[in-house]
Design a protein around this nucleic acid. Structure first.
Length: 107
DNA sequence: CGGCTGACTCTGG
DNA sequence: TCCAGAGCCAGCC
């Protein structure tokens, strides 16, 4: 596992249940890479690990429709199971469920 | 070393 | 508010 990817996973693991973070936020916390890299790093996730990849969404507050898979549906289900609510447009309210990890920066 | 690919983000219409 | 186009970086042939 590449260092950068591992760092991304580590930050994602710091996201508490019931909260969500954006790709750009993760990249900003790391201080390295861009939002895309974070997304691509997620795509490279084995899935067998305990990485809460479902807590990472795009800047629009919606889950990313990954290539040909139904993972976004599972992602929504996992988030709802943690208490994250979606609106009629399948959007998450960052004011309520946004991860203030960058703002607090107490990690 | 060069080129291709990918779960994003921003700006303009 | 929604759609389309351009820019970007790391990893892997």
């Amino acid at each position: 596992m590449p260092p950068l990817y591992e760092a991304i996973y580590e930050v994602v693991c710091c996201i508490p249940p019931g909260k969500v973070a954006t790709y750009g936020q993760i990249a900003q916390i790391l201080g390295r890479g861009t939002a895309r890299l974070v997304g691509y790093a997620m795509a490279a996730t084995p899935g067998e690990t305990a990485i809460p990849w479902h807590r990472v969404i795009n800047a629009q507050g919606k889950v990313s429709p990954r290539s040909g898979g139904k993972g976004h549906v599972l992602q929504q289900a996992l988030l709802e199971a943690e208490g994250v609510c979606f609106d009629a447009h399948q959007r998450v309210d960052f004011a309520k469920f946004g991860w203030p990890g960058l703002d607090s920066r107490k990690i």
